[in-house]
Computed example of a mutant assay.
Amino acid sequence: MNSDLLIGLIAEGKHLGGKYVYYRNLTGALAERQAPFVEIRHRPVPRFSPQRVASYVLGRLAGDRRARMVDFELNAKARELNRLRTRPTVFHTQHPFASVTIARSALRDTPIVQTVHSFWLIECQALGLAADDELLRKYRAIQDEALERTDLFITLNRLQSRRLAEYGVEPGRIVQIPNAVDPDALLAASRPFHHEPGYVVVASRLSPEKGTEVAIEAIAAIPPQERPHLLILGEGPAGKALVDLALYLKLEDHVRFLGVRDHDETIGIMRGAELVLCPSVPYHGIEDSAPLTILEAMAVGTPVAASRVGGIPEYVEDGVTGYLFEPGDGSALATIIREHRQRDGERRRQMAEDCRAAMARCFEHWTDEILDAYRSVLPAARRTSAADALPSCRPSL
C-alpha cells in the first residue's frame, strides 16, 4: 500500500446502530489490506470548563443558548484536531458534525470523505424540533456547511444519491458504494441460540420508521396452527406500544420481546431463523437506507422479507435472496411467511446459498472501492503516486 496515503478515521463510539457496525467493518477491512489509518477519538469536554461556562452564559443572554453550545462543542473538537501529531492525507467521517469539525480546524485543507447513512436533519424534524427552533436552525447551518466543505460523499444507494443532488451536491462529489459485510467473519463470530425451530426475527431499534407493528399484525393474520414464533430484538420509543399491540392481538404465546442482545448473539439468532423481517415504513420523511440487519441476515444464509422502501429494494432480489412487499401491508407479509415455510427444503437451501453468495460478491470489492474513493480526493501529486496501488472508482449517478 502506498505510503502517501494516511486515512484519518473519526472514531465511532460503540453502540448498537449501523454506523458503529460500518465503522468496525471498515477498520477491519483496512487493517486486513494493510492500509495505513489512524483512529481519532475526541475526549469529552469538561462539564464546567471556563469556555463551556462562558458559552452557556453568553447564550443565555443572547437567547440562543443551545445553538452556542453546539458551536462550542464543534470548536473544542476542532482545537483537538489542531494538536494531532500526525496529519492524515484524507479524513473519513460518518456525520456532518465531524466534517464541520475538520473544516473548522487547522487541517481544513485536508480532503474529507463522508459516508451518508441517513439524513440526520430530517430525523431531527421527525423527532419534533419546530421549524423556528434555534437548535434546528443551527443544525441546518451545520448541514449546509458540511455539504459545502465535504470533498466526496459515499452513498449506500440511489435514494441517497438523488437526495444529495437535490441538496445541490454536484454528481462529481458523489460516489455510490453499496454497503457490505464479511460473511466469513459473521459466521465465525455468531453464537449459537437455543430455541425451538421455526421462528422469524425482527432485529432493529423499536422506533416508528422500523414498522415492527406490521410484523406483529402479520403474525396475527396467520392461522394459529401455522404461526411461527416472532422474536423481536431491540429497544426504543415504540417498545411499550408494540408490547401492548401483541397483548391486544392475543399473541403473547407467539411474540417474544428479547430486548437488546450483543452483536454476535444477534447474528446467531438471525442465523437460526427461517426469515428475518424488515417491515420498515416511511415516517415523516425518514426512509431506511440500507439496514445492516438485511445484509447480515443474508450473509449467514437467512433470507429476508422486507418492504419496498428507501434503499432496501437495491439489496434484496425478490424470490432469490428474499421477498419484497409494500410498506405497511401486514397481509402481504403474512402470505410471504406462510409460503416460505411451505417451500420444500431444497428450494430453501438454494435461497440460503444465494444469500451467502450475493453478500460474498458484494464484500469482495468493497474495500477496493472505499480505498479508491480516498485516492480520488487526494491532491494531484499524491493521487498519481497512489494510482498503482488502488483500482478506479465506479461512477455514481
Rank of each mutant, 00 (worst) to 15 (best):
V175D: 11
A297T: 06
P50S: 05
W366V: 03
R163P: 07
D329G: 04
G310K: 00
R52G: 08
I112L: 02
E134V: 14
H365E: 15
E39R: 05
Y248V: 15
V53E: 11
Q143D: 13
Q143W: 08
Q125H: 05
I10F: 04
R341Y: 04
R173K: 12
A103Q: 02
V309M: 01
E39D: 05
P237H: 09
A238I: 04
C278Q: 15
A297Y: 01
L242S: 08
L231I: 03
G168C: 06
P96F: 08
Q51H: 14
A35G: 10
E265W: 01
P197D: 12
R79G: 06
L390I: 14
R173W: 06
A332H: 03
S396P: 13
L231P: 10
A11M: 03
R356W: 03
T293H: 02
T150M: 00
R66Y: 00
S118I: 10
A185G: 07
N75M: 10
E73W: 02
N179L: 11
Y167D: 15
G328R: 03
R348V: 07
L127A: 13
T335I: 09
T86P: 01
G236A: 05
S385H: 11
G345D: 15
R382Q: 15
C124H: 15
H92R: 01
E80G: 09
I112A: 02
L251G: 11
A146E: 07
R338I: 12
E39F: 00
A131V: 12
C278P: 00
L81P: 09
A180M: 00
L30M: 07
A306T: 11
P395S: 09
E170S: 15
E217S: 13
Y56P: 11
S392K: 06
A334K: 04
V320F: 00
A352I: 04
L245T: 12
L121C: 08
E32A: 13
T384C: 09
L324S: 02
P279A: 10
L81R: 03
F119M: 05
L147S: 08
V281H: 03
R158A: 15
Q225L: 08
V113A: 03
Y20K: 05
A334W: 00
S105T: 02
L26A: 04
G310A: 02
R85N: 14
L242H: 01
I336L: 07
A188G: 10
T212A: 10
S3E: 14
G128A: 03
A358I: 06
V53R: 07
S376P: 12
M351T: 06
V116G: 08
